[in-house]
Design a protein around this nucleic acid. Sequence first.
DNA 1: CTTCCACAGGAACCAGCGGACC
DNA 2: GGTCCGCTGGTTCCTGTGGAAG
Length: 399
Amino acid sequence: MSDESKDLLDEIFTKALSGRSLYKNRDALRSDYIPSKLPFREKQIISIGEALSPLLHGSKCSNLLIYGKTGTGKTAVVKYVLMRLEEKASKQGLKVKFTYSNSRIAGTEYRILSDMALSIGLSIPFTGLAISEVLGRIKQAINSSELKVIFVMDEIDFLVRNYGDDLLYELTRANEQLPRGYLSIIGISNDLKFKEFLDPRVLSSLSEEEIVFPPYTAEELRVILYERAKMAFFEDSVTEAAINLCAALAGSEHGDARRALDLLRVSGEVAEREGAIRVEEKHVRIAVQKIEQDRMIEALRSLPLHAKLLLWSIVSLGEANSTGEVYDRYSNICRKNGIELLTQRRVTMLLSELDLLGLIATNLVSKGRYGRTKKISPLIQLQFVKEVFSEDPVMGSIL
DNA sequence: CTTCCACAGGAACCAGCGGACC
DNA sequence: GGTCCGCTGGTTCCTGTGGAAG
């Protein structure tokens, strides 16, 4: 580690020790924090509560389907209601369990099921078993301990898009094989259209009840942030202007509360590091850039080797090159460095991944007789990419 | 109006891996 | 030890297509 960075670290630590912290409870601004009050979601809380309440007197409850864009409070509301339900049920001596799995984070059918198994206290090897075997064991466990299980499947659209609805089909009809237990499903989706991918039988069983979470308005975001800020910061440690700015910036997107909260949290960190006594608008503005930059650095770092090579080809070529030109450049770099090159088919896949990450911009253009291609432009500075990539041993020797 | 370029992107398949089960 | 499993990261083969050129 260089002297320079050591001094920087020293400075940070000294400040942390001497300066007073602005935060009373930093966790209150984390996106997975579940506050005791969820403003502007009373209607949804009631609907979900009503749909699930039959469980409390031992009868079965409907499956639920919940829609809403990111950061509209779906996950928080569902977890909140289920926690309350579980409490109530355990007081009554009922065995109600809820399990939660985010399909996108879990990634595969197997891991979704193993999340589920884990939270009903069943341990499943992390690989090796057939999916149907895992499902069988789960059913067995539910049956033998007479559990009532509510399975929350977050980002269920991811599952359906990538693996189809077989698993959902199995789950919706699992109850037929559960004489002594019960399994119901709460599906959470960001995407309204995902229903089109479902078999009508699955759909009708899954969406016995549907609840929609509209985006927050800028004004609602402001109120939410204000309340969270009161929990998270010491009094007078954050200005109203800063909060308003966070709300306005997030509101101009699509009312994403998670974004707004992240922004406020990072703003606080920026202010703290600066040794400021309160969070102000200028810290928010810095935070906006910092979040973006951190995201970029993280994205660049975690790229696999060939994606890095590809991105390097694009960045070094500059503006608006066709797929063919990029592929040529990429294969030259590979050959020169004795790296086995990937096929063009694979490269198009990698290109669309880079596009998705916001690292490049692609634009499909047709040049008539001279074919159809994507025009590919980098969205990041050459110098910046170089800095991050030089950490990578293989890339370092190529640059 | 037809042709045909230069790709995009879907589908099926494969190798290798870590691992369970008998 | 043999056979099964799922996942990743690839390959091969394929069909589809907007629009300038002919």
